[in-house]
Design a protein around this nucleic acid. Sequence first.
DNA 1: GTCGTGATAGCCT
DNA 2: GGCTATCACGACG
Length: 205
Amino acid sequence: MSFMSAVLPRSFYDRDTIAVARDLLGKVVVRELAGSRLSVKIVETEAYVGPHDKACHASRGMTERNKVMFGEPGHAYVYFIYGMYYCLNIVTERDGYPAAVLIRAGEPVEGESVMRELRKKARKREDLTSGPGKLCQAMGIDRALNGLDLCRKGPLYVEEGAGESFEIVSSKRIGVDYAGEYKDKPWRFYIRNSPFVSVAAGRAK
DNA sequence: GTCGTGATAGCCT
DNA sequence: GGCTATCACGACG
């Protein structure tokens, strides 16, 4: 049985994106899928802070793909990447300002057997959700959830979680070397020593 | 463990 | 037509 935990309200996301990215660590993403409850504790995030951030999809204006980022905070921005994978983001800041937090990795909490079924390639428990594409695959997250309001219970939402303490590490973001003066901004955050932090990124330090 | 590379298709110029 | 907020696999030793 899971502990009762509050769904994060819209006011949580209607704030500075970097603060939201840090504060999302330790929170719990819940996916209700075909009667199963799947959940992960967030262990790694990245902030994409607005139209001036050259790594942010919104930096080249609004398009059909990224329009959710320009809307109300607390909604899911899910996009398809590299022809094969999905990435889950949560929209932040006021309505009209395009920013979001990428959920890069999590630690399985509930529904691990279903996750293994959805990610047959995963050899070890650490491979289930240790990257943005892996996490979406393990939780059955795809474009159908793009734009969904995460501030109320439904197919996907975020809960407060247990509130354990941990140490936060920041580093440059992954895979944004094209972003000029923004490529080295320390806007990636992760829980120190978590084995579920994405491998490409390096775990400790 | 690290490194290199291929898969694969939507997105934007 | 080039690029991409990724991942898995094989070679190495």
